[in-house]
């Protein structure tokens, strides 16, 4: 356990060193958020009655603000560490360490995520709160469910990134596939628009897929769009997919290592 903790801590410290890049990223995330919120406000202004019952503008705006804040936490876009390590052959060194490979990378990524929570997620939420009226978890119970869901979102996103990255065991340059995986999944995560505003049938399906758990679920819990039993079901779906993707990741990894050792790098 200590080894994982040390890895996470080192990776966290590394994030804190790049102050300039963090500040620049923060500004960019915030600016794009402003554009998206502006679109949302205009849509609601055009026809407030068209919104689903109970899903008011404040919830939608909170959802979009959180979406910008969660970028650094789930790192679904622009995380190439493992793809590069596989391409460059550095993973061979990792494979020789007496430590679980998934755990090694998960620990490092968790450290990165925690750093991003303080460097990006919280400052961005504060910035949005200054400019727009936001809502937050309605009560302690909701807050606890949110924290659980938020943590699961990281785990799901990491497992998913891990999965498409280790395709690099089979193809020489995994970058292209990784990019395809990322770009296609974005839509399904609910990052682009609140799932509640999609047609009900589509949203219904998306909520059962693993992707919603990476972004939409914690956001809907935070903004109280999913409450009580509904929220618990959504978190259960997240937990189910977390286990399923984890099992899949380990199995794929084992197959990949077998391929590496039998065929050479």
């Amino acid at each position: 356990m200590n080894a994982y903790l040390a890895l996470a801590r080192a990776s966290l410290a590394r994030q804190f060193r790049y102050r300039g890049a963090n500040l620049a990223g923060l500004i960019t995330n915030f600016f794009f958020g402003v554009i998206r919120v502006s679109v949302m406000v205009a849509l609601y202004n055009a026809n407030p009655a068209a919104a689903p019952a109970g899903y008011d503008l404040a919830k939608a705006v909170t959802y979009l603000a959180c979406a910008q804040a969660i970028i650094g936490w789930v790192a679904l876009w622009g995380w190439w560490d493992l793809v590069r390590a596989l391409k460059g052959g550095e993973v061979v060194a990792d494979l020789q360490r007496p430590i679980d490979f998934f755990g090694l990378w998960a620990a490092q990524d968790f450290g990165r995520a925690i750093a991003q929570l303080f460097l990006r997620a919280i400052p961005i939420m504060l910035a949005f709160a200054l400019v727009y009226p936001l809502v937050g978890p309605a009560d302690i119970g909701q807050l606890l469910i949110f924290i659980l869901s938020f943590a699961l979102a990281w785990f799901l996103s990491f497992t998913w990134r891990f999965l498409f990255s280790i395709l690099g065991f089979w193809v020489t340059d995994g970058t292209g596939f990784a990019r395809l995986a990322i770009f296609s999944a974005t839509f399904f995560t609910g990052f682009l628009m609140p799932l509640s505003l999609f047609p009900d049938a589509l949203a219904g399906v998306l909520r059962w897929l693993p992707f919603a758990g990476m972004v939409a679920t914690p956001l809907d819990v935070f903004s109280n769009a999913l409450r009580g039993p509904e929220a618990l079901v959504a978190v259960a779906v997240q937990a189910f997919w977390a286990l399923a993707l984890y099992a899949l990741a380990q199995a794929t990894f084992t197959a990949g290592v077998r391929r590496l050792t039998t065929q050479g790098g």
């Binding site: 849509l43 055009a46 026809n47 919104a51 999609f198 589509l202």
Partner: peptide
């Protein structure tokens, strides 16, 4: 898809 629900954007 979202637009469809509301029908217009700033006219």
């Amino acid at each position: 898809l979202t637009f469809d629900r509301f029908g217009s954007l700033a006219g």
